Deep mutational scan, measured.
Amino acid sequence: MKHYEVEILDAKTREKLCFLDKVEPHATIAEIKNLFTKTHPQWYPARQSLRLDPKGKSLKDEDVLQKLPVGTTATLYFRDLGAQISWVTVFLTEYAGPLFIYLLFYFRVPFIYGHKYDFTSSRHTVVHLACICHSFHYIKRLLETLFVHRFSHGTMPLRNIFKNCTYYWGFAAWMAYYINHPLYTPPTYGAQQVKLALAIFVICQLGNFSIHMALRDLRPAGSKTRKIPYPTKNPFTWLFLLVSCPNYTYEVGSWIGFAIMTQCLPVALFSLVGFTQMTIWAKGKHRSYLKEFRDYPPLRMPIIPFLL
């Protein structure tokens, strides 16, 4: 059985960083990364991007050496992705923050609204209902991160945790300040508006959870398998008939419901920014589905049925 020789060059300087002799033909890129780490321990596998061309796409960890368009002496180019952190850690951090930050404003801890309001309670029912909904949303997200989601990528750049936390924590503080303010004004149409908004919120939260469970069942634990998601017997998953990412559709719907319930401008802005970002993600995933699966359902749109 022939063996391969693998040289790894710096993608920027073309400097030879490592030479691997007698590499098995069936070795994966993940195994080559581990061998590279032995000579350069500062670059652990998650930091490494190996590619066939200095400006090309990163090879997948599961790619097999003998199936790549290389000879028995293969040249790979290395790029440092920077310090990495696990997706689970990032999600837990960015979701735990809003949960606790919101509660600080809800309980009106000292130095927020003035001494005479310390630890007082709002007289408006919608304020307490909003706290329950907000807390439920982020507790749900935390539990899904721990027990439901299966991540195709193990890590992301460390800098992302600061960007994500600034976004989630900042908006949580902004909306919580106004919703729990002693001078907060309840919704214009009173109980009817709150009940309608609560119904929207609850339905969308159930829908979002149902989609996450359906997506989880598509991917076996520990794998990166991708399949076309289809509706199940659960009615909340029937939205798969019309959109590629109904989890985002339901998520946006939840925040629209919360915005109607609280009639709070920061919540509306958070919903708008979230919708914009999720639309970008949904379009990317939709394109990926179309590219990977020739039999992908043609009627589906990325996030909004028939429109977007």
Results as ranks from 00 to 15, higher is better:
Q277L: 08
P220L: 11
I132R: 02
T28E: 07
L20G: 06
D61F: 11
Y102C: 02
H149C: 01
R47H: 09
D118H: 03
S58M: 08
L307Q: 08
K163Q: 13
A176T: 06
P302S: 11
A11Y: 07
R287I: 13
V90D: 14
P157T: 03
I200W: 11
A268G: 14
D10W: 01
S152D: 02
D63Y: 06
P302M: 06
A173C: 11
A214T: 12
S244Y: 03
W238L: 09
I29E: 05
T89P: 14
H124Y: 07
I112M: 00
K60M: 13
K163S: 15
H212K: 03
I8R: 04
V88D: 01
E94M: 08
Q193I: 00
T13S: 09
K227S: 00
L308P: 10
E94G: 02
A130E: 14
S288Y: 14
A197G: 14
R294H: 01
I29T: 10
F293L: 10
S210D: 00
D61I: 08
A172V: 07
I280N: 12
L52Q: 06
T125P: 10
N180C: 01
Q48K: 05
R141L: 02
F19I: 12
L290R: 12
L218H: 05
P187S: 09
G97A: 08
L196I: 00
K22I: 03
D295V: 11
Q48H: 08
L215S: 15
H149Y: 02
P297V: 08
A191C: 15
I101K: 01
Q192L: 12
K195Y: 14
I303S: 07
I139N: 14
T262R: 01
H149Q: 04
T262K: 07
F111E: 06
G114T: 01
P235T: 04
G71V: 10
L290H: 00
E31S: 12
S86D: 01
L158R: 15
L198T: 15
K67E: 12
N164C: 03
F78W: 03
K55M: 12
D118W: 14
G257V: 11
T125R: 11
K227M: 09
I139S: 14
Y138S: 00
K285T: 13
G257F: 12
A27Y: 13
V6G: 04
F201V: 07
A191Q: 03
D53N: 13
A173K: 12
Y296K: 00
N247I: 11
L198Y: 15
Y296W: 03
F147Y: 03
D118V: 08
F201N: 14
Y44P: 04
F209M: 09
D295L: 13
T13Y: 02
M156I: 05
D10A: 05
W281K: 14
A30L: 09
P110R: 12
P110L: 07
L104S: 04
S254A: 09
L81G: 01
R226V: 03
L290S: 06
K12L: 13
L103P: 07
P305V: 02
D53A: 14
Y95P: 00
T188D: 14
M156V: 07
H134C: 00
F100M: 03
G114M: 15
R123Y: 13
E292A: 10
V202T: 03
P98G: 07
L99P: 11
V252R: 14
R300H: 02
Y189C: 09
F171M: 13
H40P: 12
K2E: 11
Y296V: 01
V23Y: 00
R47V: 13
P45I: 05
H3F: 12
M175L: 06
P231L: 08
L103N: 08
L104E: 08
P266A: 06
K291Y: 14
P266I: 09
I101V: 09
Y296H: 05
A268S: 08
L299M: 06
V194E: 12
F258S: 04
V70S: 13
P54N: 07
R123C: 11
K57S: 15
L92P: 04
F19H: 05
L9D: 13
L307F: 02
F171A: 15
Y177G: 06
S210L: 03
R108T: 00
F209P: 15
I200F: 12
H134T: 14
F201T: 09
K22F: 07
E292M: 10
N208R: 01
I29Y: 09
P98F: 03
I8G: 01
F258H: 13
Y117H: 11
Q277S: 14
Y250H: 03
L52V: 00
S244H: 15
T120S: 11
P98Y: 00
S122N: 12
A173D: 01
A46C: 02
A46M: 04
F236G: 01
D63C: 13
T166F: 06
W169S: 04
Y230H: 11
N234A: 15
L35I: 02
A221N: 08
K116E: 08
P298G: 14
L99I: 02
R150N: 02
T13G: 00
Y248C: 04
P98A: 08
Q263E: 09
P231H: 05
E292H: 12
I32S: 06
Y95W: 01
R216M: 10
H115A: 03
L9P: 05
N180Y: 04
H115E: 03
D61H: 11
A83Y: 15
L146M: 00
V252A: 11
H134L: 05
H153F: 06
V267H: 02
H134S: 03
D61K: 02
C204H: 03
K55P: 12
L35W: 05
S210T: 04
A176H: 01
D63T: 05
M301W: 06
L68G: 02
T262L: 12
F275C: 14
L242T: 14
L81W: 13
C133F: 09
P98Q: 03
F270D: 01
S86G: 09
C204I: 00
I32L: 13
W238R: 08
Y44S: 09
T13E: 00
W87C: 05
F111A: 05
Y113K: 15
F240V: 13
T166C: 15
Q193T: 06
P235H: 03
V126E: 12
P229L: 07
Y289D: 13
P110H: 12
T185I: 13
Q48E: 13
R219V: 15
I139T: 09
K55D: 00
T188N: 02
G154P: 06
G170A: 05
L198F: 12
N160Y: 13
H286F: 02
V126L: 10
P302I: 08
L76R: 01
I101Y: 05
L17I: 09
G253C: 02
H128G: 08
C264G: 10
I303H: 01
L104H: 12
